[in-house]
């Protein structure tokens, strides 16, 4: 159900600090919400880890809890020095992983 979207500049200058924007469709069920019909708590189901890699180097990662909004948006930066590929991994606490990739040309 999850669908990821990432925004990475296509080109950058060597040494430039670029901003990356990511978004994934996920309900981020916090475990604090009640089912309106049964009155029972809806079990927690969230993405608990996000990782960003640049040419294989893990340069930014995050631990998320139920306090992160549904369809989590996350933006951060990376200092680029050569062309290559970004990889983004969202880890769901049920063990599923969603990935997205983006290429960058560094001149």
């Amino acid at each position: 159900m999850a669908k990821a979207r990432v925004k990475v500049p296509k080109t950058a200058k060597a040494g430039e600090i670029i901003t990356i924007k990511t978004l994934i469709r996920h309900k981020m069920e916090s475990g604090n919400r009640k089912d309106k019909k049964t009155g029972k708590l809806i079990p927690r189901h969230i993405i608990d880890k996000f990782t960003a890699k640049y040419n294989g180097e893990k340069f930014f990662w995050a631990d998320w809890e139920g306090g992160v909004s549904a369809n989590p948006y996350c933006s951060f930066t990376c200092k680029v020095d050569k062309s290559g590929e970004f990889e983004f991994i969202w880890h769901d606490e049920k063990g599923e992983e969603y990935t997205a990739k983006a290429k960058i040309t560094v001149a």
Binding site: I17, E57, A62, S69, F76, K79
Partner: peptide, 28 residues
């Protein structure tokens, strides 16, 4: 958070490669 059901909302980890220690997110 000081008033949410759980205090910990999230943690961002940075490296020198990050270039800047800055992150944006949306929270409850």
């Amino acid at each position: 958070s000081t008033k949410n059901p759980k205090p910990h909302i999230c943690t961002f980890h940075f490296t020198p490669r990050s270039g800047k220690a800055v992150a944006k997110i949306r929270v409850r």
